[in-house]
Design a protein around this nucleic acid. Structure first.
Length: 232
DNA sequence: GCGACAG
DNA sequence: ATCTTGTCGC
């Protein structure tokens, strides 16, 4: 798949903030146009985890049949982060290599499940929003740990949720995907609404805490890192 | 000012 | 994110 929008890549934090401010107004939290048939999970693994701009990274995308959760296509890409780890500017680190992996896909996923936040972000423009705007494809964020907001503990059962608010604004939902596990944080990326995003994540996580999309993408990019680091 | 801070 | 052994539980 190809990008809908060109993107000059920032070299400094100030430039990155300007990019976010420019693209932020384009985000649309609206219901999915139709039930998704293909869903994709994306993830990035690091070779040495330093948090610096020259970290080597590997990205993976796995496309699944939404009904069976069976993988139908996968793609990877390796490269350099190109930006230091700064909470709130996380996307500038992972998006370049993720986009290169997406460009190697021959199928067109209906939704992209991102590892991280969407609107649950200090400037309401997390990685999932950013990728949605650049691709024009519906996106949502699934985060293992929250970045901000207040909420009450959801019930103990699978499917229990609680709204996450930041300064009174509804920015995400915590969702318990399995009975007895720590909830994940789900937020809108682009072209989907919070109800739809929550429903989709729950359906994609029938057995484990994280959706199958993320689990498979995680494994794939770790394998890619291993292949780069030590084929021995 | 201090601490916290997606991956 | 990544560095890492054993251990509790289904």
């Amino acid at each position: 798949m190809r990008l809908q929008r060109e993107h000059p890549w920032p070299a400094t934090e100030a430039e990155a903030l300007a990019v976010q401010a420019e693209l932020r107004p384009l985000v649309r939290a609206v219901p999915l146009p139709r039930p998704p048939r293909l869903i994709a999970g994306l993830d990035v693994a690091y070779v040495g985890a330093h948090g610096s701009a020259d970290d080597e990274v590997a990205a993976a995308v796995v496309v699944l049949d939404a009904a069976t959760l069976e993988p139908v296509e996968r793609a990877t890409a390796v490269g350099t982060a190109g930006f230091p780890y700064v909470p709130g500017l996380f996307a500038f680190r992972e998006l370049p290599v993720l986009i290169r992996a997406l460009e190697r896909l021959t199928t067109a996923p209906d939704v992209l499940l991102c590892d991280g936040q969407g609107l649950a972000h200090p400037r309401r423009f997390g990685l999932a929003c950013h990728l949605g705007v650049l691709t024009g494809v519906p996106t949502l964020g699934v985060a293992k740990t929250p970045l901000l907001g207040e909420w009450t503990e959801p019930g103990p059962e699978r499917g229990a949720t609680a709204d996450v608010r930041d300064s009174g604004e509804l920015v995400a939902r915590v969702l318990r995907t399995q009975t007895g596990v720590k909830p994940v944080t789900v937020s809108v990326g682009h072209l989907i609404d919070l109800d739809g995003a929550t429903e989709l994540v729950l359906a994609a996580a029938p057995r484990y805490r994280l959706p199958e999309t993320i689990r498979l993408a995680d494994r794939l990019c770790r394998d890619a890192v291993a292949a780069v680091a030590g084929p021995a």
